[in-house]
Amino acid sequence: MLDFSKNYFELFGLSAGYIIDVEQLAGRYRELQRVVHPDRYANASEQERRISMQGATRINEAFDTLKDPILRARYLLSLNGIDVAAQKETTQDTAFLMEQLELREQLEEARSAEDPYEVIADLMNGINRKINTLIGQMAVQFEESTPEQLEQAREILRKMQFLQKLRYDAESLETELDEVY
């Protein structure tokens, strides 16, 4: 089996850090799958097929984690001994929370807007911009990873999770509207 003691960065032969070359990551991913994927073992013994399946699953999991800025942050924190449960921690930043409330109101109002799709699209663009700003801030925290910086990173991650949930709800609303028409 793949060496399970290796972390995801080691698996892809990348140095552990928040800033990642997505093209390089995707390239390594494909190289690894070319040797491990069950299709390469279609004719092998039951045992090899099983091991190959586990390996390919592990590589997919590693790739999905590293390519996503939110999952990557959570994973880096866990490598530093900080486990942030998904959706369960909340930021105490009142200004941020106020802003979230407003955004949620805007999303609700989109339903009755003249062109709901346009309102949702604008909202999503805004959310993406905010997430991108947080990604930039996150990268700074992982440059040295002092305990203070890791605590900061954790706070940024909480905010990212908030925004991600909002983005998901906006997408769901869009789907809901599609079904009506």
């Binding site: 793949l2 990348l14 690894l32 040797v35």
Partner: peptide, 21 residues
């Protein structure tokens, strides 16, 4: 079998320079 798979993974990655690792 496990050792072989690790070896093929290693050789797939070996095209990359050492400092990347």
């Amino acid at each position: 079998v496990e050792r072989r798979m690790n070896a093929s993974v290693k050789s797939a990655m070996s095209g990359h320079s050492v400092d990347e690792f």
